[in-house]
Deep mutational scan, measured.
Amino acid sequence: EALDLGTCKAKKKNGEPCTQTVNLRDCEYCQYHVQAQYKKLSAKR
């Protein structure tokens, strides 16, 4: 099993862990959760 392949560390809205696979060398979170957090933070400017 590849060491750099894993699952997203974020949690879904219902509290369950996200099940998307990610490349851990790039980021610990999937694209969906990265974009969601970016939108959330950019709205606070």
Results as ranks from 00 to 15, higher is better:
residue 3 L to E: 13
residue 37 Q to S: 14
residue 21 T to I: 08
residue 21 T to G: 12
residue 30 C to N: 02
residue 37 Q to V: 10
residue 33 H to E: 03
residue 10 A to N: 01
residue 19 T to E: 08
residue 6 G to C: 03
residue 21 T to E: 12
residue 36 A to D: 11
residue 43 A to Y: 15
residue 11 K to D: 09
residue 24 L to W: 05
residue 5 L to N: 10
residue 20 Q to P: 03
residue 31 Q to W: 03
residue 30 C to P: 04
residue 21 T to N: 07
residue 22 V to N: 06
residue 19 T to D: 10
residue 37 Q to M: 10
residue 38 Y to P: 14
residue 24 L to T: 08
residue 34 V to N: 13
residue 28 E to I: 04
residue 10 A to C: 02
residue 7 T to F: 13
residue 38 Y to S: 15
residue 10 A to H: 09
residue 41 L to F: 05
residue 16 E to H: 03
residue 9 K to C: 06
residue 20 Q to K: 08
residue 13 K to G: 14
residue 20 Q to A: 14
residue 2 A to Y: 03
residue 18 C to P: 01
residue 16 E to R: 05
residue 6 G to E: 12
residue 39 K to D: 15
residue 7 T to N: 09
residue 34 V to E: 03
residue 1 E to L: 00
residue 9 K to H: 08
residue 34 V to W: 10
residue 8 C to N: 01
residue 39 K to I: 02
residue 10 A to L: 02
residue 28 E to Q: 14
residue 18 C to W: 01
residue 7 T to M: 13
residue 21 T to P: 13
residue 25 R to V: 07
residue 31 Q to M: 04
residue 42 S to Q: 13
residue 37 Q to L: 07
residue 14 N to W: 00
residue 9 K to M: 05
residue 43 A to S: 12
residue 4 D to W: 00
residue 32 Y to K: 14
residue 22 V to A: 08
residue 42 S to A: 11
residue 8 C to Q: 04
residue 40 K to W: 01
residue 37 Q to Y: 04
residue 36 A to L: 08
residue 38 Y to M: 13
residue 16 E to F: 00
residue 23 N to P: 05
residue 41 L to H: 10
residue 5 L to I: 13
residue 28 E to D: 09
residue 32 Y to A: 15
residue 18 C to G: 01
residue 18 C to I: 01
residue 2 A to H: 14
residue 16 E to A: 00
residue 42 S to I: 08
residue 8 C to A: 01
residue 21 T to K: 15
residue 40 K to T: 07
residue 24 L to N: 11
residue 24 L to K: 11
residue 24 L to G: 15
residue 10 A to Q: 01
residue 18 C to T: 01
residue 23 N to K: 10
residue 2 A to V: 10
residue 28 E to L: 07
residue 27 C to D: 12
residue 43 A to G: 11
residue 17 P to G: 07
residue 15 G to L: 05
residue 6 G to Q: 01
residue 3 L to G: 11
residue 35 Q to R: 07
residue 14 N to S: 15
residue 43 A to L: 00
residue 19 T to R: 13
residue 41 L to A: 13
residue 38 Y to L: 13
residue 40 K to E: 11
residue 43 A to K: 05
residue 2 A to C: 03
residue 10 A to E: 03
residue 37 Q to I: 03
residue 25 R to H: 05
residue 43 A to R: 05
residue 36 A to S: 09
residue 6 G to V: 13
residue 37 Q to W: 06
residue 9 K to D: 01
residue 30 C to S: 02
residue 19 T to P: 13
residue 33 H to C: 06
residue 31 Q to K: 14
residue 13 K to S: 08
residue 11 K to S: 08
residue 13 K to W: 01
residue 8 C to V: 00
residue 19 T to C: 10
residue 5 L to Q: 09
residue 27 C to I: 06
residue 30 C to D: 02
residue 33 H to R: 01
residue 22 V to F: 01
residue 42 S to Y: 04
residue 29 Y to C: 06
residue 29 Y to S: 05
residue 29 Y to R: 06
residue 21 T to R: 12
residue 8 C to S: 01
residue 39 K to V: 06
residue 30 C to E: 02
residue 5 L to C: 09
residue 11 K to R: 14
residue 8 C to Y: 01
residue 5 L to E: 10
residue 43 A to V: 06
residue 10 A to W: 07
residue 22 V to C: 04
residue 17 P to W: 02
residue 23 N to S: 10
residue 22 V to R: 12
residue 13 K to I: 13
residue 3 L to S: 03
residue 26 D to R: 09
residue 35 Q to H: 08
residue 30 C to H: 03
residue 37 Q to N: 14
residue 15 G to E: 00
residue 28 E to Y: 02
residue 13 K to L: 07
residue 12 K to A: 09
residue 20 Q to F: 00
residue 16 E to T: 08
residue 24 L to Y: 05
residue 26 D to M: 07
residue 31 Q to G: 12
residue 18 C to Q: 03
residue 12 K to P: 04
residue 32 Y to D: 14
residue 25 R to I: 04
residue 12 K to V: 10
residue 28 E to S: 10
residue 24 L to V: 10
residue 13 K to N: 08
residue 17 P to T: 11
residue 42 S to V: 10
residue 19 T to K: 15
residue 38 Y to N: 15
residue 20 Q to H: 14
residue 15 G to R: 00
residue 32 Y to T: 14
residue 33 H to K: 03
residue 14 N to G: 05
residue 34 V to H: 04
residue 11 K to E: 10
residue 25 R to K: 13
residue 13 K to C: 02
residue 12 K to T: 10
residue 22 V to G: 04
residue 38 Y to D: 15
residue 42 S to H: 06
residue 4 D to S: 05
residue 9 K to L: 05
residue 2 A to W: 01
residue 27 C to P: 04
residue 27 C to H: 15
residue 33 H to G: 02
residue 37 Q to F: 03
residue 34 V to Q: 15
residue 21 T to M: 10
residue 35 Q to A: 14
residue 28 E to W: 03
residue 35 Q to E: 14
residue 28 E to R: 06
residue 4 D to T: 15
residue 18 C to L: 03
residue 36 A to W: 03
residue 23 N to Y: 07
residue 34 V to Y: 06
residue 29 Y to W: 11
residue 18 C to M: 00
residue 12 K to L: 09
residue 10 A to K: 00
residue 38 Y to V: 15
residue 16 E to K: 14
residue 40 K to I: 02
residue 29 Y to A: 09
residue 14 N to V: 04
residue 17 P to L: 06
residue 9 K to T: 08
residue 2 A to S: 07
residue 1 E to V: 03
residue 42 S to C: 07
residue 5 L to G: 05
residue 25 R to N: 09
residue 25 R to A: 11
residue 40 K to A: 15
residue 41 L to I: 09
residue 34 V to D: 12
residue 5 L to K: 09
residue 12 K to M: 14
residue 41 L to C: 10
residue 17 P to H: 15
residue 31 Q to C: 04
residue 8 C to M: 00
residue 39 K to F: 04
residue 30 C to I: 00
residue 22 V to W: 02
residue 30 C to Y: 00
residue 39 K to A: 13
residue 19 T to V: 08
residue 14 N to R: 01
residue 24 L to I: 07
residue 38 Y to F: 13
residue 20 Q to R: 10
residue 36 A to P: 15
residue 10 A to V: 04
residue 24 L to P: 08
residue 38 Y to T: 09
residue 17 P to S: 05
residue 27 C to R: 05
residue 22 V to T: 08
residue 7 T to V: 07
residue 5 L to S: 10
residue 37 Q to K: 07
residue 9 K to I: 06
residue 34 V to M: 14
residue 19 T to F: 03
residue 27 C to M: 11
residue 29 Y to Q: 12
residue 31 Q to V: 07
residue 29 Y to E: 07
residue 35 Q to S: 12
residue 41 L to D: 15
residue 3 L to Q: 12
residue 33 H to Q: 00
residue 32 Y to M: 01
residue 30 C to M: 00
residue 3 L to D: 02
residue 2 A to N: 10
residue 19 T to S: 12
residue 33 H to A: 03
residue 8 C to R: 00
residue 2 A to G: 09
residue 28 E to G: 12
residue 3 L to A: 09
residue 8 C to D: 02
residue 25 R to W: 02
residue 21 T to Q: 08
residue 8 C to W: 00
residue 2 A to M: 12
residue 26 D to I: 04
residue 1 E to R: 03
residue 39 K to S: 13
residue 37 Q to P: 14
residue 21 T to Y: 15
residue 13 K to E: 07
residue 23 N to Q: 14
residue 30 C to V: 00
residue 39 K to E: 14
residue 35 Q to V: 10
residue 14 N to L: 01
residue 5 L to Y: 12
residue 20 Q to W: 05
residue 30 C to L: 00
residue 29 Y to V: 08
residue 29 Y to D: 02
residue 35 Q to G: 13
residue 29 Y to N: 06
residue 25 R to D: 07
residue 32 Y to E: 15
residue 9 K to P: 02
residue 21 T to W: 04
residue 3 L to F: 02
residue 23 N to D: 14
residue 39 K to N: 08
residue 18 C to Y: 00
residue 15 G to V: 02
residue 35 Q to L: 06
residue 23 N to F: 07
residue 20 Q to V: 11
residue 41 L to P: 14
residue 42 S to E: 15
residue 23 N to I: 07
residue 15 G to Q: 15
residue 19 T to I: 03
residue 2 A to Q: 01
residue 43 A to F: 02
residue 40 K to H: 05
residue 11 K to T: 11
residue 7 T to Q: 06
residue 21 T to F: 02
residue 11 K to I: 05
residue 36 A to F: 07
residue 40 K to D: 13
residue 35 Q to K: 06
residue 33 H to V: 01
residue 6 G to A: 09
residue 25 R to S: 09
residue 34 V to I: 03
residue 26 D to V: 13
residue 2 A to R: 03
residue 39 K to R: 07
residue 13 K to M: 04
residue 22 V to E: 06
residue 1 E to C: 06
residue 15 G to P: 00
residue 11 K to H: 08
residue 3 L to K: 15
residue 7 T to I: 08
residue 5 L to F: 13
residue 36 A to C: 04
residue 26 D to S: 09
residue 31 Q to T: 13
residue 30 C to R: 02
residue 22 V to Y: 02
residue 20 Q to G: 12
residue 13 K to R: 08
residue 17 P to C: 03
residue 29 Y to T: 11
residue 32 Y to G: 14
residue 25 R to E: 09
residue 30 C to Q: 01
residue 25 R to T: 05
residue 18 C to F: 00
residue 11 K to C: 01
residue 24 L to F: 09
residue 10 A to F: 06
residue 35 Q to T: 13
residue 12 K to S: 11
residue 21 T to D: 09
residue 19 T to G: 13
residue 20 Q to Y: 03
residue 4 D to F: 03
residue 26 D to W: 03
residue 2 A to I: 09
residue 16 E to W: 02
residue 35 Q to D: 13
residue 25 R to F: 02
residue 14 N to E: 03
residue 21 T to V: 11
residue 40 K to P: 05
residue 16 E to G: 05
residue 6 G to F: 10
residue 38 Y to I: 11
residue 23 N to C: 11
residue 28 E to T: 05
residue 29 Y to I: 08
residue 28 E to K: 05
residue 38 Y to R: 11
